[in-house]
C-alpha cells in the first residue's frame, strides 16, 4: 500500500506545486517509487515545474472518466526513473473530479507505488477537499505572513474533520509544517513572522524551512525540481525535508545566518 501525501495550504502562491515537485523527486531519488498528481484541474502547472509539459497526452480526468488507462496517462520523469507524473486537465474544471473517481485512481496507483503525492489546488473548495480526502500525511505549506498562517489553520481544521481518516475515525492524518519563502533578514527586521510566531499559532511538527531563494524561480522556469539543484539553499532544504519525513534526524538550517543556532534551539525537540 502506498502512503498518500497531500501538499496543501489554503492560500495560493505559497509554494505547493514547487514543494510537491521537490518532495516527489526527493522520495523517488531515494529509490521509492513515487507518483505525483496534479489536482489543480483547469490550472495545470505541475507538468511545467516538472518539465514534462510537452509529453502530456492523457490526463487525470481522462483516467477518472475511463477514457485512458492509468499507465497511458502516467508520465515517467526524465531525471528519475522512479518518479511518475499524473498531470491535470487544462480544459476541464474541478467539477470533473469525483470522490469515487479519485478514490479509484489512488487505489490503482497504490498497488504499484510507494508514495503518492497529491498537489492540492488553492482554496477550500472541491479540488482541495478531494486532494486531501484520502491522505495519510499532510504537508501544510505556509509562508511567514498572517493570512497564509490563518489559511493553513483553516486547512488543518478541514483535515481534522473532512478527511477519510476523520470520517472513519481512524488515526488522524499526520500533519507537518513546511515554512516556505522564509527570509531571516526580514524576520529580524520584523517584516515577516518568525518561526516561533507561526508555531505559536499552528503548533505542528516542523518538517523544514525553505529559505526564499532565486533558484526556486529559475528552477521552475527551467522545469527542473529545485531539489535537484544541490548548490541552492532551497534545494538542500527540501532534501532535508524528505530526509526528516523518512525519519532521519537532521538539524534545521537556513533559519538564521548562524548555523549553530538551530541545533541549540531544536536539537532536543526534533
Amino acid at each position: 500500500m502506498a502512503r498518500i501525501i497531500v501538499v496543501t495550504s489554503g492560500k495560493g502562491g505559497v509554494g505547493k506545486t514547487t514543494t510537491s515537485a521537490a518532495i516527489a523527486m526527493g522520495l523517488a531519488k531515494r529509490g521509492q517509487k513515487t507518483a505525483v498528481i496534479d489536482f489543480d484541474v483547469g490550472l495545470r502547472n505541475l507538468d511545467l515545474i516538472m518539465g514534462c509539459e510537452r509529453r502530456v497526452v492523457y490526463d487525470f480526468i481522462n483516467v477518472i472518466n475511463g477514457e485512458a488507462s492509468i499507465n497511458q496517462a502516467l508520465i515517467r520523469d526524465k531525471n528519475c526513473s522512479q518518479l511518475y507524473i499524473l498531470p491535470a486537465s487544462q480544459t476541464r474544471d474541478k467539477d470533473a473530479l469525483t470522490l469515487e473517481g479519485v478514490g479509484r485512481v489512488l487505489d490503482e496507483l497504490s498497488k504499484d507505488f510507494k508514495y503518492i503525492v497529491c498537489d492540492s489546488p488553492a482554496g477550500i473548495e472541491k479540488g482541495a477537499n478531494l486532494a486531501l480526502y484520502y491522505a495519510d500525511d499532510a504537508f501544510v505549506v505556509t509562508n511567514p505572513e498572517v493570512s497564509s498562517v490563518r489559511d493553513s489553520d483553516r486547512m488543518l481544521g478541514i483535515l481534522a474533520s473532512k478527511s477519510r481518516r476523520a470520517e472513519r475515525n481512524e488515526d488522524p492524518v499526520r500533519e507537518y509544517l513546511l515554512l516556505t519563502r522564509y527570509d531571516p533578514n526580514r524576520v529580524k527586521s520584523g517584516e515577516m513572522l518568525g518561526l516561533d510566531d507561526v508555531q505559536d499559532i499552528l503548533s505542528l511538527q516542523l518538517l523544514g524551512i525553505i529559505p526564499e531563494s532565486k533558484t526556486v524561480l529559475t528552477a521552475s522556469n527551467a522545469g527542473i525540481p529545485v531539489i535537484l539543484d544541490e548548490k541552492s539553499e532551497a534545494g538542500r532544504a527540501y532534501e532535508d525535508v524528505v530526509a526528516r519525513y523518512l525519519g532521519e534526524d537532521r538539524p534545521h538550517r537556513f533559519i538564521d545566518d548562524k548555523r549553530g543556532f538551530f541545533r541549540k534551539l531544536f536539537g532536543g525537540r526534533l
Binding site: 477550500i124 488543518l156 503548533s203
Partner: peptide
C-alpha cells in the same frame, strides 16, 4: 482535546 482550528 484536539485543537479547534480556524473555521471550526
Amino acid at each position: 482535546t484536539q485543537p479547534v482550528r480556524s473555521g471550526q
